[in-house]
Design a protein around this nucleic acid. Sequence first.
DNA 1: ATTTTGTTATATGAATTATAGAACACTTCT
DNA 2: AGAAGTGTTCTATAATTCATATAACAAAAT
Lengths: 124, 124
Amino acid sequence: MIIRIEAESDIPIYTQLTNQIIEGIARGEIMPGESLPSVRAFAADLGVNMHTVNKSYHELEKKGVIKIIPKSGAVISPEEITAEKKAQILSELKPLISEGLVLGMKKEEIQELIISMMNEMKER
Amino acid sequence: MIIRIEAESDIPIYTQLTNQIIEGIARGEIMPGESLPSVRAFAADLGVNMHTVNKSYHELEKKGVIKIIPKSGAVISPEEITAEKKAQILSELKPLISEGLVLGMKKEEIQELIISMMNEMKER
DNA sequence: ATTTTGTTATATGAATTATAGAACACTTCT
DNA sequence: AGAAGTGTTCTATAATTCATATAACAAAAT
């Protein structure tokens, strides 16, 4: 899985990493049961600090995407989504969808963009 | 339009305000051509600082949702969306959609949630 | 004219982000 | 058993962001 970190971005590095790992899983590039690199190895690979990777891993665990086994490693193990998490995702989607609508995008256009986005992930 | 600011939230106040204004426009509670309250009046109303509201207004202008008329006011005036802004929104939607998929949500479920979200806005 | 408006400037404090180095205890590998 | 690798924890520092506060300014609105 190729990770691309942009230091100049206004998005924190640990968030960039979290997002790209999630997208890698969604794309099927990493499968449940597989392990992520150690925080040290990954940090060295990406050229960032160990703690930054560690923070990302804990964010992923909080999201229910990985399981951190103390002193051992981080394993991809998606939990079943809860109603609370579903509501959380929805609340974050809302302002983005609203923005599209306000700027004149049509419902159908938004739907199709999201559908094609999803198709590019799960397939292939 | 009712604005609800949560000081304890990890989302910055100016972002909460920006999002809720956009959602208010999407819901049709404020119409293009109408003005937003002055930064001072709104700040006093919300119990926050003037600069916080000002920051939100400039974010809204950058997004192309309102037009700030110097020394006068802020008018709702959505611009036609650009390809660049469309790509920006898509890039922000991506990690959220990915998270849903990874946690086991089905494509159809995500589609339907988004459709019903959009229907609750534009209608009514 | 007076008030109201957004703008600009300076300042402060708290929190966040990212880095760094070190030490610890447990796991894994040889 | 010993060595290496693991996440964890602690302390520290610097830069940036967020929110507030106060003040003054010039243009617009009343």
